[in-house]
């Protein structure tokens, strides 16, 4: 029952915070455009007035890109640097904005206010950076320990059969994903707790995140599992739909842009739904404690 209440409240609160989602979407668009638009310019200048773009009608054509020669090398290096920059800045911006988002998803938040949103973002920024950093490092470390190292050992063992590495990889990755669900719960509880407290106590918040995750394991875990499955299915759907669309007119390009941004907007909404649901789950637990149950 708690799960459904949390899911329902989560979606309602996330819809209520749509302005926050718009802010996140806009920041994301601006950030990636900083890399993508100059790249387009560089590509345009590399191709000049050539008709070779006909070969791009069906997507990426390796011959066209390779024939760009030195321009391609610069383009590639710009892309790698740009991607790194976007990832780094994206990490900081996400840490910043999720503070505002979590704050707006609290039960006592009332109507969404952009000013309040940014105040909460700024207030929780450093805590959220540290929390995100620690959880991200934990995810990477666990992935190495649980998947990478054992699979490498199996694949290099002379006595093991050929499929063994793949089978081991599949089993261990599944196991890792189950643990990942726990880590995401910890991250969300931690941040939900942090925004509900005035002081920036990220380590205390982390402690709460862990204890809350395991205290409410039987309700929290299925809740997060449902939310992640929905997100994964949605991601898979996007992956099927978007690459297949190849407009050939300017109007088509505009429609593709609108569609892809709409799909991305929904993706953010689904994530905010997760934040909202976990926040509600935490509130339900507190209510229960307050009632002395």
């Amino acid at each position: 029952m708690k799960i459904f209440i949390s899911l329902e409240t989560g979606i309602l609160r996330s819809v209520k915070s749509w302005k926050g989602i718009v802010i996140v979407w806009l920041c994301s668009l601006l950030l990636v455009s900083l890399v993508a638009i100059p790249m387009k310019g560089a590509l345009k200048s590399g191709l000049g007035n050539s008709m070779i773009t006909e070969k791009l009608a069906n997507g990426i054509n390796v011959e066209v890109f390779a024939d760009l020669g030195t321009a391609f090398r610069s383009l590639f290096s710009y892309f790698s640097t740009g991607l790194f920059m976007v990832l780094f800045v994206g990490f900081l911006i996400n840490s910043f904005l999720s503070g505002g988002l979590f704050d707006s998803l609290k039960g006592i938040s009332g109507t969404f206010s952009p000013v309040k949103f940014f105040i909460a973002s700024a207030k929780n920024f450093w805590s959220f950076v540290i929390i995100s950093l620690i959880i991200s490092l934990a995810v990477i470390l666990l992935a190495i320990l649980i998947v990478v190292i054992p699979v490498s050992i199996v694949s290099h063992a002379e006595s093991s059969s050929e499929g063994a590495a793949l089978k081991t990889g599949i089993i261990l990755t599944s196991f890792f994903l189950l643990i990942l669900v726990l880590l995401l719960l910890v991250a969300d509880y931690t941040r939900a707790w942090q925004v509900s407290h005035d002081k920036n106590e990220c380590f205390k918040a982390l402690g709460f995140g862990f204890s809350q995750t395991f205290r409410t394991f039987f309700s929290s875990y299925p809740l997060m599992l449902i939310l992640l499955v929905v997100q994964l299915l949605y991601g898979w759907l996007v992956l099927i739909v978007l690459p297949g669309i190849k407009p050939v007119t300017e109007g088509g390009i505009v429609l593709l842009f609108i569609l892809s941004q709409f799909l991305f907007f929904i993706k953010i909404l689904l994530k905010v739904w997760r934040y909202g649901s976990v926040t509600k789950m935490m509130e339900l637990h507190f209510e229960r404690l307050n009632r002395g149950v």
Binding site: L29, V32, S33, A36, I37, M39, K40, L43, K44, L47, T53, E54, L56, A57, I60, L242, P243, K246, P247, V248, T249, E250, G252, I253, L256, F257, S260, Q261, L263, F264
Partner: peptide
């Protein structure tokens, strides 16, 4: 320029 715009669009997404 349509193929370039399409590529940029997809890169952004």
């Amino acid at each position: 320029r349509v193929p370039l715009r399409r590529l940029t669009n997809k890169l952004i997404s």
